[in-house]
Structures are given as structure tokens and as C-alpha cells.
Design a binder for these strands. Sequence first.
DNA 1: CATCGATATTGACAGACGTCGATGTATGCC
DNA 2: GGCATACATCGACGTCTGTCAATATCGATG
Lengths: 115, 115
Amino acid sequence: MLTLTPVEAVACCSPLSREPLSQEAAERIAPMLKALADPVRLRLLSLVASHEGGEACVCDLGDAFDLSQPTISHHLKVLHEAGLLEREKRGVWVYYRSSPTAMSSLATLISDTAS
Amino acid sequence: MLTLTPVEAVACCSPLSREPLSQEAAERIAPMLKALADPVRLRLLSLVASHEGGEACVCDLGDAFDLSQPTISHHLKVLHEAGLLEREKRGVWVYYRSSPTAMSSLATLISDTAS
DNA sequence: CATCGATATTGACAGACGTCGATGTATGCC
DNA sequence: GGCATACATCGACGTCTGTCAATATCGATG
């Protein structure tokens, strides 16, 4: 069975302001926005994106929060499963990188609604 | 006391990819994204934005959903309080209009993370 | 003023979500 | 092999969220 990644699901939508979003499309897009719609995850994403090389090790991220390690790990998983962060294991460390295509297609979808 | 609207709170942020988002900024932005992060609300917003004149009466919106009237009213309230929809009462009817500034500042915030 | 129609508010409930401590898994090192 | 370190998973807990039925509010109309 063919499954679209969340990113692909967003990229193929016509602007919100041209024709009403179908229920199916809305149900594919909402999870990506839901992944973004948390203060901790927003900061995590921002930390990764602003880190040198555009990637960051989990060990670099936890210090910025007053949260347990499992909680940070949970949030990173949510962002990863939504297609907003890419994951790469290097030795003992895990590096996350933000996905420009995911972010820009989300941004396009939203900005089209503005006009 | 001076309170920023959600829209103003987003508009004044530097790109996510230049410097990490502060906790305060993240906590102001997240509610707007949370308002957007629901399939029903995404469709409502899209219905309003794509409606002729860029505005729609509540009576035009309910039919597209298999949901009760109070539920639709609730979602519209969430979108309105997040600054994503403007509300105007005309006689017995209430018209909602999408807020271009809100959407475009959100889009800018997200798209900056992509680069 | 009584009534009707359009929308909002309230209260209740089930399910989803964020968080933690405890535990599991895997890699590197002695 | 044995141990330490980095990260993930699990199970439990309180809180938040989407939904509905019932009720309230507000404007128009007779």
C-alpha cells in the first residue's frame, strides 16, 4: 500500500483560500501542525534549526529545558514522526536535523490562506 | 497592563533558525498553532477564506460537517480567540473573516525555519 | 409582548496529551 | 565480559480537549 509522508500530504494541497480543504486533506495536515503546536517542541525545533550545521545532538538540547530526559525524547519523537525533524544515529549519539521541505510546504499552505 | 494580541506576539519574533526561540515567545506562539492544529478548524478556516468576499456566515459553515451546532460554535470561538478569525455580528447572523496578517506572520515564522 | 430562528454558553464525559520514574537497548571502553 | 553513557520505551498519573444535549442570549417579526 502506498503511504504518503506527512510532508507529501501537505505539499499536494491547493491553497486554503482557493477551495475548501477536503476532510481527508485536513486530517493529514492537522497532525503536522499539532506536532508544532507545543511550546517545548517549538523551542526544540528552533534549537535544532539555529544550531551550527543545522543539526543538533540530543545531548545539546536537553539542557535548555527543565524537563526530564524521557520527556525531551518523547517530544523529539513526535516531531520526527510528523516529518519535521530527521533523525540520524552516529555512534552513541543521535542527531536531529530540521526538514526544510516540511517546513516550507507548511508555510506555503498557511500563507496561501492569507491572500 | 499592555497585552499583545496573538498576532503581534508572533510578528515580533526573529526567525526560528537564527536564534533559539525564548520560552516566553514559544508560549505565546503555540496557542495560535494549536488553534490551527485541528482538522475541523483547518476546514473551517479554509471554508471562510475561500468563501466569496472572504467572509462567511456561520449558517454557511455548519452544513459541511457532521457535527453539532455547539461544536462548530466552539471551534469558531477557538479560532477567533487565537486571532485567526475576525467576528462581526450583522443582525441575527454572525460573519467570520480570516485575518491575513495573522496567517502571514505565522507563515513567515515557519518558513524562516526552513532556511 | 410572545415567539421564532441564529448563535453562544454551560456542564458532562470519554479520549488524547504532557510529564515523570523506572526500565530497556545499544554503543564505546577498560 | 563488564561497566558506563546516550537515548528510547513503558506504565501511570493529572490535565487538557473535542464532543454532545440542554439551556441561554439576542435580534427580527408578527
